[in-house]
Simulated assay, not measured.
Amino acid sequence: MDMRAEVWSPLQNTAVWLGAWLYGHESTDDLLDALRDLGGSQELADARPLTDMLAGLRAVADLKSEEPVVRLVLAGPGEAIALPAGSEAAAMASTNGAGAVIVRDADREHAHVLVPEIDATTTRWHWFTHTHPLPAAAWVSPGEADALLTQATERAARMIEALGYRTDALANPRLTVGALSDFYDTPGLPSAVPARAAKLFARADRVAAIVETVTARMGDHSLDPQLLGLWRHIRTARMAGVTYCVAEFSR
């Protein structure tokens, strides 16, 4: 199992950048640069340039909606993705290791699902349009998500400290966690991201780094029952942070 794929989400930052761009907080050039940093070369699944997708999003996105126009959906072991069951979008988003981005249409009978197909150098976007309601989002406030992650961070940190690892493979757990936290934060977020969301994303990155440190870097799976339970809190924080960002961009 790829531990990093379960705890890191480049699509989180992609969704935030799309929201900031749609509401005019970021330029198209800056958006394209950020997406290249996040996922390499970008194109549609039919090989059209990404600018065609952006033009399409600009045409359909409901920027007057009271609900966030962009939403991130993630899934993991034991947790189905919040897309129509049996749909091609749900099948692809459940197996691509990345999730999907939902964009609200001004026509309430339509919703657009962007699913990335990612390889070592290229991200290819599949665009699905649904004409029936999508599953309701599990709305969690940034405060609630942050509280869950705070508790998870404290619990995971105590586990690492209690182990007292001093091995050739990993001499300094705290240093490794810090370095991985920096990795998860790269290449960053738009400048318009509210501080509350930035704090939540940083917390998610920190917990993700702790999980990866213990399971992947230390190679210790004795704590899997406790650590794997943190994945859901990480995903929830990332989705809640995106929702909050986009809501603030619209103000």
Rank of each mutant, 00 (worst) to 15 (best):
A55Y: 00
V193I: 12
L11E: 02
A195V: 11
C245Y: 03
L149Y: 11
V60I: 05
M1L: 00
A34D: 03
A198S: 08
R124V: 04
V211N: 09
A209P: 06
M218I: 05
H112Q: 05
A82K: 11
E26I: 08
L163E: 15
D224A: 01
D168F: 11
D107M: 05
H25F: 15
Y244E: 00
S65Q: 00
M92S: 13
G164A: 11
K199P: 07
R158T: 11
K64M: 09
E154T: 11
T129S: 04
A152C: 15
D146R: 12
A91R: 14
D46K: 08
L230A: 02
Y184F: 14
V193K: 07
L72Y: 08
A157E: 15
L175E: 15
N172I: 09
M239G: 05
V193A: 01
H126L: 07
V73Y: 04
A91S: 14
E154L: 10
F183N: 12
A152M: 14
H126E: 10
G164W: 08
P135A: 13
P68R: 05
A75H: 14
L50S: 14
P49M: 03
T14M: 08
I81T: 08
L35E: 13
L223D: 03
L57F: 04
I102D: 01
R174V: 15
V103W: 00
L32K: 02
H132Y: 14
A55C: 04
L32E: 15
E117D: 03
G39L: 02
I81N: 07
H221W: 09
L44D: 07
D52F: 07
D185S: 12
A247Q: 10
H25N: 15
K64C: 00
V73G: 10
V16K: 02
S181T: 14
S94V: 10
E67G: 02
V101I: 12
P10K: 07
A136H: 10
A55D: 14
K199A: 09
A55T: 09
V101Q: 03
A111C: 06
S141H: 14
S94M: 05
A156I: 06
L163V: 09
P142G: 15
L31F: 05
A192P: 05
T236W: 02
I234S: 01
D30R: 09
A198Q: 00
R108C: 00
A93S: 06
V7S: 11
S94A: 14
T121Y: 10
T150K: 06
G78M: 02
M218V: 01
